[in-house]
């Protein structure tokens, strides 16, 4: 632990994290001792059935919620000891959060939406507009800056949300079901955007229940009943391998890709082992396997 605390490559360090909710009289044990380390430039997918605790974990990762017990260290800072205002600062400066339903301000232009996080920080006071424009160009919306959300397609809205998440140069990009409200084609666009950002060095954590989305990550962490069930690189994740087999066999039949009207796209962009990017990723040293489920 002490070794990792000083390691600048470790972005997120979570130990024995517990979260207990009180729903009326009942106590819900949402997280039961999670250990997780995420290093710089990782692309991690967190998966799990509903009720597995993945949303709770995501909220704590995003400093939106505080753990009941355990340690959450973000960039070497103990966020589990922080108060509301300090957490707000962490959310502002260190975290870029992307929501399933975009959460854009309906009356504000794309540019204003992207500038929003900088409104709450004194850091980029003189360069806010320039930074927002750059972020929008980065997600391919350089020509949509003065559009309002209702003038944009779903994919474009999510791109605005990504630009907003990126604008403060966060240490980590957290996406909670980012493609949950998008059709297959747009999903592929957003995932491609994530890959692009990842190639450029961005650390990304995605919560999803779609195997084909998770397939673009380097590492898949699976939760069950508030515990880490498995933690493997995408190549080695047994469930994912089975899913790939199934979708190959189902090529042409509709069984393969859940939620996809046709199986073709999911297979088409599937990073199969023999694709060049996959081999590059496979060649990269992985320290993450060590943190497998207990």
């Amino acid at each position: 632990m002490s070794k990792q605390a000083g390691d600048p490559d470790v972005i997120i360090d979570i130990r024995a994290l517990h979260k207990v909710y009180k729903v009326g009289e009942e106590r819900v044990h949402a997280l039961r001792g999670i250990d997780l380390t995420i290093r710089r430039n990782e692309f991690v997918a967190i998966m799990g059935a509903s009720g597995s605790g993945k949303s709770t974990l995501m909220n704590i990762l995003g400093a939106l919620d505080k753990p009941t017990k355990g340690m959450y260290r973000l960039r070497g800072r103990d966020t589990h000891k922080m108060g509301m205002s300090q957490l707000a600062r962490v959310r502002n400066e260190d975290i870029g959060f992307i929501f399933q339903s975009f959460e854009l301000l309906p009356r504000a232009t794309s540019l204003k939406n992207v500038m929003l996080p900088m409104l709450y920080s004194s850091k980029h006071i003189f360069s806010a507009r320039k930074r927002a424009k750059n972020a929008l160009r980065r997600v391919g919306l350089g020509d949509r800056m003065t559009h309002r959300p209702n003038q944009l397609s779903g994919g474009q809205r999510q791109r605005v949300a990504v630009a907003r998440a990126l604008v403060n140069d966060p240490a980590i990009l957290l996406a909670d079901e980012p493609t949950g409200n998008l059709d297959t084609k747009t999903t592929q666009e957003i995932i491609a955007l994530f890959r692009e950002l990842h190639e450029a060095g961005q650390t990304i954590v995605v919560v999803t229940h779609e195997e084909d989305v998770a397939g673009h990550a380097d590492r898949i962490v699976r939760l069950r009943d508030g515990e880490v069930m498995s933690d493997h690189t995408t190549r080695e994740d047994p469930i994912h391998r089975v899913w790939i087999e199934q979708s190959r066999e189902g090529h042409g039949a509709k069984a393969g890709a859940p939620g996809a009207p046709e199986s073709a796209p999911s297979v088409g962009v599937m990073p199969t082992q023999d694709s060049p990017t996959a081999s590059v990723r496979a060649a990269r040293p992985k320290s993450t396997q060590a943190r497998s489920a207990t």
Binding site: G62, L64, M84, S85, A88, R89, R91, N92, E93, F97, F99, E103, L105, L116, P117, L119, Y120, S121, R164
Partner: peptide, 9 residues
């Protein structure tokens, strides 16, 4: 949303 992107109370 504003809180999520860093607006303090």
């Amino acid at each position: 949303l504003r809180k999520a992107v860093g607006a303090r109370p």
